[in-house]
């Protein structure tokens, strides 16, 4: 049997975390092997920390932040995109499948979208890993 994919999910404290909480409150399920880790803002993440997640054994790393233009700190998500781009570049060099590292966003209180995006990420990851 295929090993279930371990996913480290970085969420910012605002839009994405609120989506995570709402998904729980609405009993919207997703893979329990997705382990959330909250930071105040995705801008907190450097490319080094993102890569560290793989080093710790994550099969996939998903970054969920606030929708465009709705970052609580305004400049945070812009910086996160830079860090993400660098990390992406490095994982590509390392030969990682594209599905293993993704960045997306969830609006505050949108548990439905949160669960959909997490499920989608896990499904794509499993497909890439299994195939």
């Amino acid at each position: 049997m295929m090993k279930p994919a371990k996913v480290l999910l970085f969420t910012c404290n605002w839009g994405a975390y609120s989506g995570l909480e709402t998904a729980g409150a609405q009993n919207k399920s997703y893979s329990p092997n997705v382990r959330p880790l909250k930071v105040m803002c995705l801008g907190r993440l450097s490319s080094g920390i993102i890569l560290k997640a793989f080093e710790c054994g994550a099969d996939g790393v998903l970054l969920l932040g606030c929708p465009p233009g709705e970052c609580q700190y305004e400049f945070g998500s812009r910086r996160a995109e830079e860090a993400f781009a660098t990390a992406k570049e490095l994982t590509r060099l390392l030969g990682y499948a594209d599905e293993r590292l993704q960045m997306d966003y969830v609006a505050a209180g949108d548990g439905e979208t949160f669960a959909l995006k997490v499920r989608h990420f896990v499904a794509e990851l499993n497909r890439a890993q299994g195939g």
Partner: peptide, 13 residues
């Protein structure tokens, strides 16, 4: 952050 990531992922292992 590193310690938390290690704990979350190692536990999965």
């Amino acid at each position: 952050l590193e310690a938390m990531m290690a704990a979350l992922m190692a536990a999965g292992e």
